[in-house]
């Protein structure tokens, strides 16, 4: 029989034409997707006159980009460096605070099975359907009045905006932690208690390290949101406040240098680059985090 003959493996490389075409098509799409970035990059390295004349040509030299960066850094009303560090501090500390406080809340809500916990959990969940636009007007008023009557200024202050992010980040974070902690076996915690751990110790030494996967997801989801957020800081800090975040600085710069595309694009580039660098380093986590966060 013919079939019993051992098959000879075809070692010649077959040229798969559809695959090559697909690859070319994909590359073309990639170029198309990157075109806006490229346009920003080449035009940030020009003076405004050249941009108006021909925005598509390559710049004479990329040295101009540093001149433009220098102009923005020198501008005392934009305070670029300060805004960058403000954004960095606000993002990192609110990420930390949201993560830890939401995990704490979710843990006690899972581990104490009463109607009260269920009610509070549902209460947190109901926050997920409230868009920011609905609470922004009363929030500003509430914070102003609280500051005026109690002396604790929540507006235009770091603790105010951190508290705001904690509040707005809580629903999603508590929800995700709640789902995850349910799958953590309670036996580990009981063993730790028998070994002499107090309840807070059980949480911080045993449970919190176990939450790492979902913690990373939340870091990514909340981090992207907080780093790029404009509306909340512009309202809670106030546009004429003592400090500003990076998106607010870009907004301010674009408002004060109308149609000065060289400076606007340079500032856009400077605002986008930290996120891109973070993406290059933590690409795997970011993609996984954002995707798993979407499929709730």
């Amino acid at each position: 029989m013919e079939n019993t003959k051992p098959m000879v493996k075809d070692n010649r490389k077959k040229i798969d034409i559809p695959k090559i075409l697909l690859t070319l098509f994909g590359l073309g799409l990639l170029v198309l997707f990157f075109l806006p970035f490229v346009l920003v990059l080449i035009n940030a390295a020009k003076v405004n006159r050249d941009i108006i004349a021909d925005p598509l040509s390559m710049p004479e030299s990329f040295g101009q980009i540093f001149m433009n960066i220098g102009i923005i850094l020198d501008n005392s009303s934009v305070r670029y460096v300060q805004s960058f560090f403000n954004s960095l501090i606000i993002t990192t500390s609110s990420l930390f605070l949201i993560g830890v406080t939401s995990a704490m809340a979710a843990w006690v809500l899972v581990r104490r099975k009463t109607k009260m916990s269920f009610f509070i959990f549902m209460f947190f969940l109901s926050g997920m359907v409230i868009p920011f636009q609905v609470v922004m007007i009363p929030l500003v008023r509430l914070l102003t009045i609280l500051g005026r009557s109690t002396g604790i200024g929540f507006k235009d202050s770091l603790h105010g905006i951190l508290l705001a992010y904690m509040g707005f980040g809580a629903p999603l974070s508590v929800f995700l932690f709640h789902g995850f902690i349910k799958s953590v076996p309670i036996d580990i915690e009981e063993a730790a208690i028998i070994d002499g751990c107090s309840k807070p110790q059980v949480f911080f030494k045993i449970v919190l390290p176990l939450l790492k996967p979902i913690f990373v997801t939340l870091l990514v989801l909340n981090g992207m949101w907080i780093w790029n957020d404009y509306l909340l800081p512009s309202l809670v800090i106030g546009t004429a406040g003592t400090f500003q975040t990076l998106p607010m600085a870009v907004m301010f710069l674009a408002g004060s240098y109308l149609r000065q595309w060289d400076l606007i694009l340079t500032s856009v580039l400077m605002a986008a680059i930290p996120a891109v660098i973070a993406f290059l380093f933590a690409q795997k986590y970011i993609i996984r985090g954002m995707t798993s966060g979407a499929i709730k």
Partner: peptide
């Protein structure tokens, strides 16, 4: 902490 900030801000 979570409940307080959530109540106050949302």
């Amino acid at each position: 902490p979570a409940l307080f900030s959530f109540l106050l801000m949302v």
